[in-house]
Design a protein around this nucleic acid. Structure first.
Length: 1023
RNA sequence: GGGCGGUUAGCUCAGUGGUAGAGCGCUACGUUCACACCGUAGAUGUCGGAGGUUCAAAUCCUCCACCGCCCACCA
């Protein structure tokens, strides 16, 4: 696919009169993609540059954080590609266990509701009453799990009964996707109760009876269960899971779409299997019974990092545990009274004199028939409350550890569904944990054991995923021992081989790594990588082994009586492998060899531990290379000196968090999110990108303001129109090549010098991820230097003829073309569109060389001259504006005695200044005009003075006022300089160049003052 | 409780020791043939507060205040 041929001279395309981002975006993305410009293959002759993008969830759609991060990533990608690196940016998605499961569960629940409606209709349920169509169905339950616990079932029937009474219905029906426990079913719904339950068994019967329902729902419902659920997840992912790729494309991301990866691709699964196998065989993965963060809504464990603590107002309850021998009581405090049913001890500090005589005594645990010991443990803080703490090993991490130290029983009183268990005793079993709290308090009060209740702020653990209050729960899970993995990951950062930008994140990373704790990797979900562990109870004891499939399991365990672990792995267990697994590991691939270690990981702050830290650990742990063949910077020498553990990436850039205008986090629940797609639709992808980059410095957050995007759009518009101007002034003969130096005017040399400074700034800024500096430099150069001055200065030359006109044309084309290349990584579309229209070399700006500083373009002399031209022009314009002088007035300029260079510059640029100020020709005169030579007004500039002839129209008072205002300002400056120079300490101690500078400045101000005073006198003779 | 950011013009933010800046907004003027998504000119600041270091502090140090983020098992 080719849109344009290679052009080296003359424009072939005109730009549309108005800038329309949409057309431009739609033209160039398909062109780039179809020509394979995004694709990279290992090329030994070039240096690689690789980024593996943070894979968004398949449930995700582009939010501002993505837009920011992917703009940074794509800018770095394009910059390197233009600089000649073999550049690969690899996209992909994450299966996102919890998020995807939630979406699919919701979808299935809705479908089940539809089914229930149809089923009732089909059955013509006899008790349906007119006007109350749902009266007979109070509860439709759908769940991923086919079993229903007795508690859940009792609860459901209870609600059914309540609803039946409330509605006055003679009959109530429950339809559930669960298998109801048959005994309970008979017990709770006898034929005369008017209560009926259609559980899964019954539904299957009914399906046989109704062929139309069978056709519509049969297949799905009959197979309801894990396999069907996973099938639905895949179906969902096929349909929606890659929507975000199109959004990346809209944003302009130049990613290698031929290499997209998904964390459940077969090759990726190989990597996870290998990871698990190695860690399992090395004993790093182990089965443990510990207190984990239990999410009662997800019915799954979640990791420490996915739990946030919120301070919520709650109560601290004090109550009494009597001694078994009747000799008084101990007072204890808790924020969770219901857990007391699982207490197995009370602890006090061994040095606490109040309790020292009592250790070893036994307490009667109220509301139960148990007796528990009073133990001594240093974890009880004497200064808190009574100094005695209740110990509930099954429901609190500290208590759990204390329990291990003292060999205490662990009694689980709160179940996985958040309801009290049988172990809590018949009075509490089945109650929700918060209802149980009420009842425990009532009962304690009734027994006179409740001492007091205080308001108390509670640090409440909240599940990040569901918003539910976490229940610490004793449970058997799979863990990874992180300590040995953390060690090299700490060293490598200490040695500076992986760099954090901004640097402050290094300390945050190290602190966490040094205090790392075991990672609970099992999740009680269905969607994800099922744990590759198989079990058997052959021979009486339970055994387990690693196996990729049933065959391997049978071999490993030596029996056919095997089953696979029910749990899946934490999603981060798979994303931890992202950089090397996407490049082919565990297989030795050319990609892995060439592109790994990758260069940049750019991501959000919140996943520093969750993801970044773990990638560093897995990378160093799994990727080893011969030390002799790898550079020192690539990683850590292993103990034997022969191998090196390789880092996954060299730079970690942590970008800012995008907040709303009020500084709040953007969130779905607040509804304050800004959709980047809306911004792109309104302002264009280039403007959206440029605006984000203007705000992406080393700051911690960005308060998003749509006006910034508007500004960026205006910038694009300015670029567009300046380019139109240049294009409409080019000739067939314009090559866009840099003319011979002799042909250049001061203005030409000046713009080259400015351009060069911009090139240097932008390259330097990009290399340190200072995106804001890069965009600022470009904005100022294009708008203030190029458009405001250079283009204006070129206009008269373009109206002329001959060589100077050609020089101006070539220089305009040259500077613009270079600027476009400089700008391209940030605003890819508009730069390509304009570049294609200008004289250029190559088929796409994407692959054109990135501008590099040219020392020969630096021209301090031209910069100085232009500074004078600009200052003189501004002074003249100021006089015109303030005094209301019509365009075309005569003007003159006089250099001060001793300023030969200034005089020369004024003479050389006389026409230019006049033109810029829209005045008639400038005369450079020897001395300032006098009162006799007509009425003039003047203003001193550095080293000279400029004058306007104003004739009888001069408003002398107005001019006096203007002059006095300036005199006052100058006086202030002189005062400041004099006081500084009058300070002997300054003159003695400050650097000599600073003092010199100050002296020079004073002299300039004094000259200015003299001129102003002279002018004032002349005005007075007129007045 | 510990750590880290931030506090500069009405707004959003640059500025790391030497004359306080940009964009937007504001005021006045402008139908000049690239651009009103524009141009020209102008006004606007005890640089959060208090001390200190220094010839010199928005910038370095100490303390304080407020806003935000991260970490933390005190029942």
């Amino acid at each position: 696919m080719t849109i344009t041929d290679d052009k080296t001279a003359a424009q072939t395309r005109e730009l549309a009169k108005t800038y329309g981002p949409k057309i431009v975006e739609e033209r160039w993305y398909p062109f780039w993609k179809a020509n394979g410009y995004f694709h990279a293959e290992p090329d030994p002759d070039r240096e690689p540059y690789c980024i593996t993008i943070p894979p968004p969830n398949i449930t995700g759609s582009l939010h501002m954080g993505h837009a920011l991060n992917n703009t940074i990533i794509d800018t770095m990608t394009r910059w390197h590609r233009m600089r000649g690196f073999c550049t690969l940016t690899l996209p992909g998605t994450d299966h996102a266990g919890i998020a995807t499961q939630a979406v699919v569960e919701r979808e299935m629940a809705r479908e089940f509701e539809r089914f229930c409606d149809r089923l009732r209709q089909a059955e013509g349920h006899p008790e349906v009453r007119a006007g109350v169509p749902r009266a007979e169905v109070v509860e439709i339950r759908w769940s991923k799990s086919p079993e229903m616990t007795p508690h859940q079932f009792r609860d459901a029937i209870q609600q059914l009964e309540k609803a039946k009474q409330a509605l006055g219905a003679p009959h109530a029906l429950l339809i559930t996707s669960h298998d109801a426990p048959p005994d309970l079913l008979r017990e709770l719904t006898p034929p005369d109760s008017g209560l009926e339950v259609w559980d899964r068994q019954k539904i299957l019967e009914l399906l046989q009876k109704h062929p139309q329902l069978e056709a519509e729902f049969g297949e799905r419902l009959r197979n309801l269960g894990r396999e069907e659920f996973i099938r639905r997840c895949w179906e969902w992912r096929e349909q929606y899971g890659t929507r975000i790729y199109l959004q990346f494309e809209k944003l302009g991301c130049s990613y290698d779409w031929e290499r997209v990866r998904f964390t459940m691709d077969p090759s990726y699964v190989d990597a996870i299997m290998e990871e698990f196998r190695q860690w399992y065989e090395r004993g790093l993965i182990y089965r443990g019974t510990r207190v984990v963060n239990w999410d009662v809504r997800l019915l799954s464990a979640v990791s420490d990092i996915e739990v946030n603590t919120e301070t919520r107002q709650g109560k601290l309850y004090h109550f009494r545990y009597p001694f078994a021998d009747g000799s008084g009581f101990i007072s204890i405090a808790t924020t969770r009274p219901e857990t007391m049913l699982g207490d197995t001890a009370v602890a006090a500090h061994p040095d606490d004199p109040r309790y020292q005589p009592l250790f070893g005594k036994t307490l009667k645990l109220p509301l139960t028939d148990r007796e528990i010991p009073l133990i001594a443990d240093t974890y009880a803080k004497p200064e808190f409350g009574s100094g005695a703490v209740k110990v509930t090993p099954a429901h609190d991490l500290d208590d759990f550890e204390a329990g291990l130290r003292h060999n205490l029983p662990q009694i689980v009183v709160i179940g996985k569904d958040g309801r009290m268990t049988e172990a809590a005793g018949p009075r509490y079993a089945g109650l929700d944990r918060f209802e149980a709290r009420k009842r425990v308090l009532e009962d304690l009060e009734a027994q006179g054991l409740l001492e007091k209740i205080e308001d108390y702020p509670i640090q409440t653990p909240i599940s990040e995923r569901s918003g539910e209050i976490i229940e610490p729960l004793l449970s058997e899970q799979w863990f990874v021992d992180m300590k040995p993995l953390a060690k090299p990951a700490i060293d490598v950062v200490h040695e500076g081989k992986i760099q954090f930008i901004p640097e402050r994140y290094k300390a945050i990373y190290l602190y966490w790594m040094e205090n790392i704790r075991p990672w609970c990797i099992s999740r009680q979900l269905w969607w994800g990588h099922r744990i590759p562990i198989w079990w058997t109870d052959e021979g009486g004891t339970k055994r387990h082994a690693f196996a990729r499939n049933r065959e391997e399991a049978i071999k490993a365990l030596g029996t056919e009586n095997v089953w696979q672990d029910e749990d899946v792995l934490d999603t981060w267990f798979s994303s931890a492998l992202w950089p090397h697994a996407t490049l082919g590991w565990p297989h030795e691939t050319a990609d892995l060899n060439y592109f790994y270690p990758t260069n940049l990981l750019s991501t959000a702050q919140e996943i520093l531990y969750l993801w970044v830290a773990r990638m560093i650990m897995t990378g160093l742990d799994f990727i080893k290379r011969p030390a002799a063949a790898t550079p020192d910077a690539d990683g850590l020498l292993e103990g034997d000196g022969q191998t090196r553990a390789i880092i996954p990436f060299r730079d970690v850039y942590i970008h800012a968090t995008v907040l709303d205008e009020q500084g709040r986090r953007m969130s779905k629940s607040l509804g304050n999110g800004v959709d980047p797609m809306d911004l792109i639709a309104e302002y264009g992808a280039d403007a959206t990108r440029f605006a984000l980059m203007q705000q992406a410095g080393k700051n911690q957050d960005i308060r998003f303001n749509a006006r910034r995007t508007e500004d960026a759009r205006n910038f694009c518009n300015k670029l567009w129109n300046a380019s139109r101007f240049v294009l409409m002034n080019l000739d067939e003969a314009t090559t866009g090549l840099l003319p011979e130096r002799e042909a250049l005017t001061v203005a030409d040399r000046w713009i080259l010098s400015r351009l060069n400074a911009t090139i240097a700034t932008v390259n330097a800024a990009l290399s340190t991820y200072d995106m804001d500096d890069a965009t600022r430099a470009l904005y100022q150069f294009l708008w203030n230097d190029f458009c405001d001055w250079y283009v204006e200065m070129a206009k008269p030359r373009l109206r002329g003829e001959g060589e100077d006109r050609a020089t101006a044309q070539n220089l305009l084309a040259f500077v613009l073309e270079t600027t476009l290349r400089l700008l391209h990584p940030m605003t890819p579309y508009i730069t390509e569109e304009i570049w294609q229209a200008l004289p250029h070399q190559g088929e796409t700006i994407m692959l054109a060389p990135y501008p590099q500083p040219q020392p020969a373009w630096d021209d301090p002399e031209a910069e100085q001259s232009m500074a004078l031209v600009i200052e003189a022009t501004r002074s003249l314009r100021n006089m015109r504006a303030e005094l209301g002088i019509a365009p075309g007035a005569r003007l003159a300029a006089a250099a001060l005695p001793g300023y030969a260079a200034v005089r020369a510059t004024l003479e050389a640029n006389a026409g230019l200044i006049a033109d810029l100020a829209r005045l008639s020709k400038l005369d450079v005169v020897k001395t300032a005009p006098t009162a006799e030579s007509g009425k003039w007004v003047g203003t001193p500039v550095e080293g000279a003075e400029v004058f306007l002839e104003i004739g009888e129209a001069l408003d002398v008072d107005k001019e006096l006022e203007r002059t006095d205002k300036e005199l006052a300002a100058v006086a202030k400056e002189i005062e400041r300089c004099e006081s500084k120079l009058g300070n002997p300490n300054f003159v003695e101690r400050a650097r000599t160049d600073i003092v010199e500078e100050e002296r020079r400045r004073l002299a300039t101000w004094q000259e200015k003052r003299a001129k102003l005073e002279e002018h004032r006198q002349m005005l007075e003779t007129w007045g």
